[in-house]
Nucleic acid binder design. Structure first.
Length: 271
DNA sequence: AAGTGGACCTGCTAGC
DNA sequence: TGCTAGCAGGTCCACT
């Protein structure tokens, strides 16, 4: 589910309300992708700091260490003063004096992992290979071009890998490539500098626009207050196989790359 | 080293 | 109506 926009929208929707809250209890459901890595009671009594995002991860600082959270494919966070009784897919509750932060995740590809800091331990290991943030001034056409030149996989797979730039998952990688007019099957090392310029700009623009629109709710994404996103209404190619292209008289196609669906318009996306 | 495919887990939908 | 195959927003890991 959650790509950078959904994670950022989630962060914005609860960070102000949980900051400064004291942890009073931690409740665990079924196992997530990795073990928590700390005895839950050790978190009790600690105050929550300012929530940060790195790629599709959220970092929840505590006084001693913090929690690195990932929403996987089907996770969402809710924050409320009073949360309903445990449902079958509620796997982590951080109960505080200001409300409860709850991770609901049917597929359990998500994670909540304790780490002594964001720069050491488990968090450092998980964040180590991430590429630049798309809104980092250092991420531009020159950087993208140089990084793509070293890779032979398709440009779509290079974007999804997250080692060059983080945040664009399957929806937004497809949308950015459409925006830039680039065929997703193009080998990374064949992307010219001008096209890398356009692609970098498209990635930033699409992700920023998606955050503005509250992310994409394809089926079940909600922010921490339960609000759905609306960017899916603006998607030009994702999920539109067989429908007419919004830009030319072609038809949107669905192919599979690296086991993932790719949507694109053969008419206006060129190699 | 970079590329590839499988693994993790559950729920929903289309098709028979 | 009911079963089944296929598909889904991510990413780690083992293997070539």
């Amino acid at each position: 589910m959650p790509e950078l926009p959904e994670v950022e929208v989630t962060r914005l929707s609860f960070s102000g309300r949980i900051e400064g809250a004291r942890v009073t209890a931690v409740r665990l459901g079924k196992p997530l992708r990795w073990p928590l890595g700390v005895a839950p009671e050790r978190l009790v009594g600690q105050t929550v700091g300012r929530v940060e995002r790195r790629g599709k991860y959220l970092w929840l600082p505590l006084e001693r260490g913090g929690l690195l959270m990932h929403l996987g494919m089907s996770g969402s966070l809710a924050f409320a003063e009073r949360v309903p009784a445990h449902g079958p897919h509620d796997h982590f509750d951080l109960v505080t004096g200001q409300g409860t932060l709850r991770l609901t995740d049917p597929r359990r590809f998500g994670a909540v992992v304790w780490s002594p800091s964001a720069e050491s331990g488990a968090a450092a290991k998980l964040l180590a290979k991430l590429g630049l943030e798309p809104f980092d001034p250092r991420f531009d056409g020159a950087h993208l071009h140089a990084a793509l030149r070293k890779r032979r996989v398709s440009v779509k797979q290079a974007l999804l890998g997250g080692a060059i730039v983080v945040g664009a998952g399957n929806i937004y990688a497809c949308e950015a490539l459409f925006e830039a007019g680039i065929d997703p099957r193009t080998r990374s090392d064949r992307i010219s500098r001008p096209r890398a310029d356009r692609l970098a700009a498209a990635i930033r623009a699409i992700l920023a626009r998606a955050v503005e629109r509250g992310g994409s709710t394809l089926r079940d994404f909600r922010d921490a207050h339960g609000a759905a996103g609306e960017f899916q209404l603006e998607a030009r190619v994702y999920g539109r196989a067989g429908q007419g292209c919004v830009r030319c008289d072609g038809t949107v196609r669905r192919i599979v790359q690296g086991g993932r669906a790719t949507f694109f318009c053969p008419g206006c996306q060129r190699r």
